[in-house]
Amino acid sequence: MKIKAKNDSAFIQYLLHLGDNALIMSHRNSEWCGHGPALEQDIALTNIALDQIGQARNFYQYAAVLINESSNEKQTEDSLAYLRDAWDFKNCLLVELPNGDWGQTILKQFLISAYQYYLYLELQNIQDEQLAAIAAKSVKELNYHLRWSADWVMRLGDGTSESKKRMTDAIDAVWSYTYELFEVAEYENILSVEMQCKIREAWIEKIKTVFGKATLAIPNSQWKQRGGKLGVHTEHLGYILAEMQFLQRAYPGSEW
């Protein structure tokens, strides 16, 4: 498939979408810092948060270069993270949902890690060299996120009656947000239809395998929540941004 010109705004929007998914997920994970149920798990989630923020930085840095090349703007990774408003963010709704309990946190992490893993596997073969390089680098880190979260889904789903109930409740709460991962926005057309199918099939296969081992079921409901990819968010994103962006809004340009 022919790749669009680099300064094409669709490609820039796609980079921002990838960066926003990683940044908002990272922020949610960082909320567990100091609150994990055991020190090792606290450290695991904050490590994942760190990887996600590193990946977000790579996407934003690249987007900033392309934006500045094609306009008079002077964007940086920081201005993209701290000075855009909710409607400019293109992350999927799933990543902005509140953490809930440990079960819901784990479930979200698993669903998203599986998605990012199979997405990056495909993106590393894409024609755009820099995006392919970021994906190839990130997929190595996603390996760990996916294995860790899948282990926990199995442990909790196939655990006590209480842990199983928590996981079932979590699935009921977030499943309707998973459809959006695979509803292709216009700027995602950089991925060929074959790639999109491959990612979706690999994802659902992984979910089925892990849910099977965890004695958990995929809900029958087809109710779909959507909007994040196009900038229409839940009220939760505003609160995340208020906390994350406060310092740069109140003291513009301040540095450590």
Binding site: E40, I43, N47, R147
Partner: peptide, 12 residues
């Protein structure tokens, strides 16, 4: 003990 440790590059 854990696949994640005190820095990104280490496990426990």
């Amino acid at each position: 003990i854990s696949e994640f440790g005190s820095t990104s590059c280490k496990a426990l």
